[in-house]
Write a protein that binds this DNA or RNA. Sequence first.
DNA 1: CTATTAAAAATAATCGATTATCTGTCAATG
DNA 2: CATTGACAGATAATCGATTATTTTTAATAG
Lengths: 245, 245
Amino acid sequence: MNSADDSASAPMTDEETASAGFSDDGKNTMGSQLASRLREAIISGELEAGSKINLDKARRTFNVSLSPLREGLARLISDGLVEFQDNRGYRVAPISLANLEEITTLREELEVFALRESMRIGDVEWEGNIMRSLHRLNRTERDASRPETLEQWEALHREFHLTLISGCGKPLLLHFCGLLLNLNDRYRRVFLIRTSGDRNVGQEHSEIAQGAVARDIEYACEKLRQHIHRTGTNLRNHLATKGIV
Amino acid sequence: MNSADDSASAPMTDEETASAGFSDDGKNTMGSQLASRLREAIISGELEAGSKINLDKARRTFNVSLSPLREGLARLISDGLVEFQDNRGYRVAPISLANLEEITTLREELEVFALRESMRIGDVEWEGNIMRSLHRLNRTERDASRPETLEQWEALHREFHLTLISGCGKPLLLHFCGLLLNLNDRYRRVFLIRTSGDRNVGQEHSEIAQGAVARDIEYACEKLRQHIHRTGTNLRNHLATKGIV
DNA sequence: CTATTAAAAATAATCGATTATCTGTCAATG
DNA sequence: CATTGACAGATAATCGATTATTTTTAATAG
């Protein structure tokens, strides 16, 4: 439960978005790699929400022994992406309308609170990091027809949101926000959503970022709240379309 | 990440306070039992904060193989009680003034928010559960000279706080609050603190509970916030006494 | 004397096999 | 016909041994 300063690092690969409590040096262990692969498989929808994870099958699929497999799965439990029951094994965490709405609500509470704190005590380096993240995000095209573009955009988008609140000086809070962001991204990835026509997401990000570095607390926080809320509404509509309750 | 309704159950044993994502049927697996024993060892201070956990030694101490030991430790990572690094093993999560202050701040934010939501949508059963938890808590004496009394009180105290917010209908939020409560209790247990003279904790609990069932949102939330804040201040002083930074 | 490297010891990670538990099927019973 | 119970197959949990990595120690060069 530490590492509040990840955001200052070089361009992130998916592997580096690991959750708190665990950390990888690059020289990964098998369990770590599996956690990454499984996380990607779940967030991308390759592993269906709610489905059972057969250990023996997974073991063969990934060509590993049970130990590292369980190790990896344990981490995804921390992430809220996998559920577990004694003697009954693992299951991909289900998705639901209620879950999405809770994620959205909590993001509005926690992420906005974290932004407020960041604007209160964040330093110049924090400001700089925001502008850099914003620039990189805005320079990246999001093309639904090319998956590698999507993944890249998702990584940068996540990075932007985390950087925005990285100045708050509260590792636990950042951990919670990271989890929520992860869970939220899953809904977007599962539905391969492109933003609906009436939104200019790039501009929304810019407004939040500019408000943040200008230390206009009420403006920035309100923009962020709206941004999160709109995303929630957007995703909810897609969920409804697919008939998910 | 479910089970929002634990609070309606019979008197809790320590084992039943397991974290979300995992659940035990009573017919526990070895990993589950280990998680409980280790959790107790850490929260009680038996395992020193910040100290390294030697797998081989632990394996011999608990008379188990590596697999269930790792399994148990993985759960404590989810709880924020253990930290892990690839190829370097496990370590009891350290304690610090900053960590305690963050826990207190986040409890003020999240627990109060959860109480607000509970008061907005909680039903009569929720109200009843609160009154029951309050009664059981107030009927239990907390005697620092008798450890079994302390554990009993801690369990009931935890139960009371969770029940208070159990009506909010937000499993994730309850999960976060549960984690924070756990982390907070650790500080209290480690220092075997009895409440300082100027507080009547029993009355504080009663006021919060009565405000909650009377749906006096502002009153109850403010009382809860003060309660959490006082506990934080209290613990901080003890930490300072022991020279912990 | 300090810094660098090599070997040895300690520790963590993984594997393959074994044991325990659960789940579904089907027959026997009321 | 529904219910119970025993069996068999599937699946999860655990173990003991092996392999990989890190940390410590010792030796050597500068």
